[in-house]
């Protein structure tokens, strides 16, 4: 087995006294396209937040390239190449799209920032005419592009995307999926939380099913797609 890029061991996490994640373990290898699926409130966002320094786990370990990051702040993860695109986009609405994107490079030196900005705009052409407009004025799909673009500006090796397509128009979803697939083909490791289980599993090289804060199933995307339990619970067939 190749050395895991991101490794999560027996992770417990939650909010205050409330434990949401119970002993979750998973591994992400370089080049993986990982999908995390589960119903509302299963703890998907809590998981992503706990493996990106946004939330402090109460027990267990998070390793990035073998380094123990369990108690590191989000900035340390960003510096080490793991960037989290949070649920709800969390853009800076009163700032321009360009400023939002440039802030994605906050943890880096100036080198190559302009080139990376160009590349992000090539990945998401609809952002070009909106570059000097406020991020708060973008459509939902454009906001998601801006959020992923902002994440890419940090030059991640692993990109965590929480709810890629939630609440977006089908056209926008297609464009975003296509862009993410291309990023993956170009070598970026991707972990995505996606409520459209069908779509998520079709793309995933590895998938985890999260139920009530525990991993209940795991396997390759296509494998899980044919699993009767998945078909009954998430695909309604």
């Amino acid at each position: 087995m190749t050395e895991a890029l991101l490794e999560v061991r027996d992770l417990r996490s939650g909010y205050g006294d409330v434990t949401v994640l119970w002993d979750v373990s998973l591994g992400v290898r370089p080049g993986d396209f990982v999908a995390i699926v589960g119903s509302n409130g299963a703890g998907k966002s809590t998981l992503l937040a706990s493996v990106s320094g946004m939330l402090r786990p109460s027990q267990g370990h998070v390793l990035l390239d073998g380094h123990d990051m369990t108690h590191s702040p989000a900035e340390a993860y960003v510096r080490r190449g793991l960037v989290h695109v949070p649920q709800g986009r969390r853009l800076f609405p009163g700032m321009t799209v360009e400023e939002n994107l440039l802030l994605g490079a906050y943890r880096r030196g100036r080198d190559g920032v302009r080139q990376d900005l160009e590349r992000v705009l090539e990945t998401f052409p609809p952002l070009v005419p909106r570059l000097h407009g406020l991020a708060g004025r973008l459509s939902g799909g454009e906001q998601q592009m801006c959020a992923i673009g902002r994440g890419l500006m940090g030059r991640p090796r692993v990109l965590l995307i929480d709810e890629l397509s939630l609440g977006l128009a089908p056209v926008a979803v297609d464009a975003l999926l296509e862009a993410v697939r291309r990023l993956h083909a170009d070598g970026l490791t991707i972990v995505v939380v996606e409520q459209d289980v069908q779509v998520a599993l079709e793309h995933a090289t590895v998938a985890y099913v999260l139920e009530a804060g525990r991993v209940t199933l795991q396997g390759s995307g296509p494998e899980l797609l044919t699993d009767p339990r998945i078909r009954a619970a998430y695909l309604g067939v």
Partner: peptide, 23 residues
Amino acid sequence: TKLGRAIRATAYDQVGARAVGIN
């Protein structure tokens, strides 16, 4: 400036700010 932008970003969205690595 980068720092000034980061200060404004912090006012707009703390989660977003932390996600890009702002302390």
